[in-house]
Design a protein around this nucleic acid. Structure first.
Lengths: 238, 238
DNA sequence: GGCAAACACGAGCGATCACTCGCGTTCCAC
DNA sequence: GTGGAACGCGAGTGATCGCTCGTGTTTGCC
């Protein structure tokens, strides 16, 4: 009996509940202590995932990090994957909140250097504050559900980047625009790893400025005229 | 994995020395069949590491992939880590061989676009042909020995990049030069992931060209004069 | 105070993993 | 041919992991 899903118990329902919630499989009432434990466990899971990755992290280690017993952990999460999913969803929500305002139309009207600041800074700040995010998302050992959500985020971010590129280089073919957006984001991810690896302080700030320089030099030529077939852009040899 | 982490140092297979010492723990004579089995096992290990990562890969799965029994696997490797180490060393050796000629002085005399071709192309070709290399090196779950060797390779490659930058921008301060080299390599790694993710064929070729465009636009401004304090380089904003 | 439910524990269960061992087979020097 | 070593096998071993369960404690409500 490994299945613990309280699906339905049609037999011998003692009393019809006055409150009608047809779609509530878990009417578990949480106390304030329980909510605190959940946050505590998720924080511990973030630490362990961050230093060991998902698969190498053991649930016992997470429980120990949170100073609770394994049984207590499994009172709040049905299995190990659910811990990662809940943590991933919370981080994703924070991420969308912190980053959602970066691509507003008013920011899109900014010149490229300022737009870069507006987009890159919150992204870097979030990843510095939540290193578990990249550890969960970038790791190839993440559970399927996390990978799906990360893909969804990735696709939406790429769409935003394509919008920006379309704004600055309206004459560019869609296929090339997609390629430039991919490359922009990929190089940003590479630079982000560098920024996170740098020690906090002036070194990290310098690295952030360097990353912006890279992106600016890559994208700036797109803003000058249509430039559909310049000598620098994707010369098809042969 | 375990928090105690005894971290013993497993002795690597000693290379055959011309000098005959009485204390030789492994005078194992290999037959041709054995050498074939080793290559077969390493190929199987490369496949399994590539699709599952190091920790998630089981030795039984490697043996199954090689169509041998677990006992046969352990006749040639003392433990799981030794498989990864041997595979990593062989890949590293191939890598240095394929890439060692990229930074020769004659190539360094080339103009930047051609130098980029000479350096980037073999690097990409090698990683396309050996996807297990990045799976072993880039994964955070690799055994300590692999990580060390990867770090060593990383350091030596960065030194080469710094040399190139010093050649094209002699007036740049050493600290900034190191930062530019780091950023160049980091963005290349990000772009490399993109290239490997692209399907083989014209799409991949276009992505390779795009990566070179990125690197060229980033590095080209360095070639024009000393440029120690241009408006684009590492502007500290507020 | 009394009670039910939520909370907390930690020993233990089944599964899986890295790895071993005893025994049979194939190769090669002599 | 023959003996010894390299090769090959696969069930088995100890350890660890994800997860459960019986039991005891705390909390909220009357």
């Amino acid at each position: 009996m490994s299945e613990d899903a309280p699906e339905d118990v049609p037999e011998a329902t003692p009393e019809a509940t006055s409150e009608v919630t047809s779609e509530e499989p878990k009417p578990r009432r949480r106390q304030a202590r329980g909510e605190r434990r959940i946050a505590q466990l998720l924080q511990a899971a973030a630490n362990v995932f961050c230093s060991n990755g998902y698969t190498a992290a053991s649930t016992n280690a997470i429980a120990r990090e949170a100073h609770v017993s394994p049984g207590t952990l499994y009172q709040y999460f049905p299995n190990k994957e659910a811990i990662a999913i809940e943590l991933g969803e919370r981080l994703l929500h924070q991420m969308r909140e912190a980053h959602g305002q970066a691509f507003t139309p008013e920011n899109l009207a900014l010149p490229l250097p300022e737009l870069l600041d507006a987009v890159v800074d919150p992204m870097i700040e979030f990843n510095c504050a939540n290193p578990a995010f990249l550890a969960l998302m970038h790791g190839s050992d993440a559970p399927g559900r996390i990978a799906e959500e990360h893909d969804a985020l990735h696709v939406s971010l790429l769409a935003r980047v394509r919008e920006v590129i379309a704004h600055f280089a309206p004459g560019m073919p869609a296929q090339e625009r997609a390629r430039v957006a991919d490359m922009t984001f990929a190089s940003f991810k590479g630079g982000l790893d560098l920024v996170l690896a740098a020690p906090e302080g002036p070194e990290r700030d310098a690295m952030i400025a360097e990353l912006k320089t890279l992106l600016l030099r890559y994208l700036a030529p797109l803003t000058e005229g249509p430039l559909t077939e310049g000598p620098l852009t994707t010369t098809r040899s042969h």
